[in-house]
Amino acid sequence: MSEFVTISEIVQKLKFTVKSGVDFISKRTMISDLSRPGLELTGYFDFYPSDRIQVLGRTEISYIKSISHMNRMAIFEEMCQKDTPAFLITRDLEVPPELMAVATSNGIPVISSSMPTSQVSSMLEQYLSDRLAERISVHGVFVEIYGLGVLITGESGIGKSETALELLKRGHLLVADDRVEIHQLNQSSLIGEPPEILLHLLEIRGLGIIDVMSLFGVGAVRDRADINLKVELLNWDDNNRYDRIGAQIEGDQILGIEVPRVKVPVRVGRDIPGIIEAAAMNYRAKLMGFDAAKKFDDNLSRLIAKNSALDQENETAEQRKKDHEAASKKS
Rank of each mutant, 00 (worst) to 15 (best):
S2D: 08
S2V: 01
E3V: 06
T6S: 06
T17H: 13
V18S: 14
V18L: 04
K19D: 14
S20N: 02
V22H: 11
F24G: 11
S26W: 05
T29A: 10
S32G: 08
S35D: 14
G38M: 03
T42I: 03
D51E: 13
I53T: 02
V55P: 00
L56M: 02
E60Y: 03
Y63K: 09
K65E: 15
I67C: 04
M70H: 13
N71T: 12
A74R: 00
C80Q: 08
K82A: 12
T84K: 08
A86F: 04
T90M: 05
R91F: 07
M100A: 14
M100K: 15
A101E: 14
P109G: 04
V110M: 11
S114K: 14
V120Y: 07
S121R: 01
S122L: 11
L132A: 04
E134F: 03
E134K: 13
I136A: 06
V138M: 10
G140N: 08
G140A: 00
L148K: 11
G154R: 15
S156Y: 06
G159H: 10
K160V: 11
S161C: 12
E162C: 08
A164Y: 04
E166Q: 10
G171F: 05
L174Y: 07
V175N: 08
V180N: 01
H183T: 04
Q187L: 11
S188I: 08
S189I: 09
I191W: 02
G192S: 08
E193L: 10
I197C: 07
L198F: 05
H200T: 03
R205D: 04
L207V: 00
V212G: 06
V212F: 02
V212N: 02
G217F: 04
G217V: 03
R222D: 03
D223K: 15
L234Y: 12
L234G: 08
N235W: 11
R244D: 07
A247V: 09
A247Y: 15
I249N: 03
D252K: 12
Q253T: 14
I254V: 07
I254L: 01
E258S: 15
E258T: 14
R261E: 13
R261W: 07
R261F: 13
V262Y: 07
V264M: 10
R267A: 12
I272N: 09
I275H: 07
A278G: 07
M281R: 09
R284A: 15
K286A: 01
L287M: 09
G289R: 04
G289K: 08
A292P: 13
A292D: 04
D297Y: 05
D297L: 06
D298Q: 04
D298T: 02
L300Q: 10
L300I: 01
S301R: 05
L310P: 00
E315Q: 13
H324L: 15
S331K: 13
